[in-house]
Design a protein around this nucleic acid. Structure first.
Lengths: 106, 106
DNA sequence: TCCCGATATTGATACTCATCGATTTCGATT
DNA sequence: AATCGAAATCGATGAGTATCAATATCGGGA
């Protein structure tokens, strides 16, 4: 935990523009229905991880499109990935979710 | 509260597509640095409300642009507004923030 | 009733992004 | 090494959006 909870609340004081920019990137990543579903599929998948093939099967979207969304989620720190054999497995980064959750907590 | 907490967790089960679409709209609204700052300014403003003039003064953006962002935040249920005399005051809708917070809580 | 300040709406523009097909990369297996 | 399946990258395109100037609306006071 990098910042105490009391300082992370939205209502504590106006967000410094720089921090708002960083946080907005994460919210923006969650602001796409496909990406939000990807996050929830990975989060609820057994073992806490899902491979790309689990995800492409869950959407009527092309494999490159899913790959693009995974890249976005990874770039903002919501997901990590690990390659094992031919497959790549994605996991949630719980600290990032917790950061947002703490920010929004009344 | 429309949904019990235990069902609102991201990791509980994959989000139904329609619910993901609704939630993504809210995240998308927060996914802009200006709008995120607006929310935090309103949330931390004395009395829990801020008028448009409080906001236009906080950004180097035109008044129509601020008005546009306020409209977006209002449409997704993050803000409400009330006109008093010549001024319009905006307030946070805490239930909406709580919904997101609960969703992201590990 | 007629202005004035505050806020919202409109229309236009430049930029971003979700998506796809084609191609590439990577690891494993033969 | 040749090939195969899985995943990532590339290039293009159409849809969406943040922004502004101009204009409209809305209340209050003269």
């Amino acid at each position: 935990m990098t910042v105490p909870d009391c300082a992370s609340r939205l209502s504590r004081e106006p967000l410094p523009p720089e921090r708002a920019a960083d946080l907005a990137k994460i919210f923006k990543a969650l602001g796409d229905p496909v990406r939000l579903r990807i996050v929830s599929i990975v989060a609820s998948h057994e073992g806490g991880e899902a491979c790309v093939c689990d995800l492409t099967g869950a959407f009527e979207l092309s494999q490159p499109t899913i790959s693009h969304h995974l890249k976005v989620l990874k770039e903002v720190g919501l997901l990590t990935s690990e390659r094992r054999a031919s497959w790549v497995y994605y996991r949630i980064v719980p600290e990032t979710l917790a950061e947002l959750s703490g920010l929004l907590t009344p």
